[in-house]
Design a protein around this nucleic acid. Sequence first.
DNA 1: GCATGACGTCGAAGCGCTTCGACGGGCGAA
DNA 2: TTCGCCCGTCGAAGCGCTTCGACGTCATGC
Lengths: 335, 335
Amino acid sequence: MVKITDVARHAGVSPSTVSYALSGKRPISEETRQRVEEAARELGYRPHAGARALASSRSNVLALVIPLRAGIHVPVVMQFAVSVVTTARKHDHDVLLLTQEEGEEGLRRVADTALVDALIVMDVQLRDPRLPLLRSLERPSVMIGFPADSEGLTCIDLDFKAAGEACVEHLARLGHRVVALVGSPPEVYVRQTAFAQRVVQGFTAAADRSGLSSSVHPCEASPAAARLVAEQLLREQPALTGVVVHNEPILEPLIEAFEQLGLRVPGDLSVTAICPDELAESVRVPVTSVALPSAEVGERAVELLMKKLGGSAVPEATLLPPRLAERASTMPRSA
Amino acid sequence: MVKITDVARHAGVSPSTVSYALSGKRPISEETRQRVEEAARELGYRPHAGARALASSRSNVLALVIPLRAGIHVPVVMQFAVSVVTTARKHDHDVLLLTQEEGEEGLRRVADTALVDALIVMDVQLRDPRLPLLRSLERPSVMIGFPADSEGLTCIDLDFKAAGEACVEHLARLGHRVVALVGSPPEVYVRQTAFAQRVVQGFTAAADRSGLSSSVHPCEASPAAARLVAEQLLREQPALTGVVVHNEPILEPLIEAFEQLGLRVPGDLSVTAICPDELAESVRVPVTSVALPSAEVGERAVELLMKKLGGSAVPEATLLPPRLAERASTMPRSA
DNA sequence: GCATGACGTCGAAGCGCTTCGACGGGCGAA
DNA sequence: TTCGCCCGTCGAAGCGCTTCGACGTCATGC
């Protein structure tokens, strides 16, 4: 293994000079810097991560806690994770993967052993047991999603309430008067995940504001469940012409089910969704949707963390505004 | 931060004794050990990961390289990653997440900086550019999948050839004489990913052996593509009664398409798949399938790595035998 | 009874890096 | 010309842990 003293000898300087030349933390003459850099390149020098972490008390590693639970769309988690890794690398950091299963003890462990400098926590619950811990930890963290009380924490997410509103408003603008929300599986609501409830809030509030008649229907993530909901909607709300879907796996099956029940999309029924653009575009009838910007959230989360690590203050709440993309699944209500 | 000297003082022993007491690397009297453990607990002692890594030249971190590319079923990757993390934790290791995007440089970086002790590489290509690097690295690695030449490497995967065979043999046993394989998207074959080709090999070999007439059809991962393949199959092979699907996203849409074309599953057409059990069970007609045991592969991969880290020799190739689970989608050919 | 060895513990060295204080030489100001 | 200052570099001190060799003690065997 080639170490800093090897580089120093090869460049004819002291180890500390090598360190400063490579880190830029003190001014070094241009000429010396180049000699050092070349020596490092020639020898293939790679600073030992552990040694560096010990001396600088910075590991340059971030922890990412991913959810495992049912009702969460896996591709979204994956895309998010990838974007975190990619962005972290741009800031010269690596990412340690933790599962939610590890719980608070896992967070405490990686923080206390100085394995990581900072943490990103996904799938935050309204009253998440990890909150007190995160608040007390001496390391910065960012949460994806909003708990009931986010005082003293840094949170970021799509503005799901506004997303729900945007969908309804779009339908209202098109003249629809009776709308329904087909939501996430019941267990997602039961365990008080904030984002699902916020969609409902936004949906309901906007519908009320616009004087629409509305209803909310949690739905399991299976095609069979989608079919049942479709039938139920037809039966109970024959005047229905607008649907908002917040449940990725059933988006396509639900549309399929409506069509099999004789409802054309968008001819008889306009459909909007809150889901990744990728999914909205891959359905046979491309769906008007508010994008779930996982990649952007991941990127922003890492950047918030970098700022905090740099000692800057950051806003406690970052709500990404919804962007609604019109596609083929919505049209004005037929007269 | 509480350090080992604090624990030592509190327990009335030397730091080295604390180290030995906690690691068990040298015999320590039961009484002393208990005093040390209690002191550590009382003070909330957490050894500093960097210091430990520096002194022991072991970081207790594994690198996991995940694929990003098209045509790979995301939930499988995710399940695999989770199982790697979970198993690694059982062996007191953590997992650093790398994307394939980082390429060889990324592997070299984490290995050379001693950030990780060992590596797990997913989605290995037949002639993967990372192979020479992995062979030359001084750190052990395990690959998920088999390259053309696996000499000197440790590889593990489902035995995809046997899986293809198992599906065909099951159909043959049920009396089917004309079978088709609906495979992965074309790009998967083009980039020479071993597992897709092995399924084809197994499928074809078994069909030939049993004297079945067979054909192979790559298929994009969209419902529309599934419909096209279904139509094509009906048109070109009216005598077809057995189908093997190796393409997760289209399993359900394909069956749907067959039924819409008037073919009952399994009445007119028996369908088997190579996919996660979870998926096979969630289709409306539960599908007879060979399981894609991602969790088991992940677990075994970590265990292989642990053995290598412990200095034991491990087999170069580990092929998990296929397990075919009969479900509702297959039945004997109607006379 | 004394040498032998095993057991339990200690002290010190050192892992490879960062960082702090210091120092020498060059320059501008007085 | 001299003083003071800044720039660029160096040396040394650790960061917190593991590990090696050594040492004292006690039981064992002849």
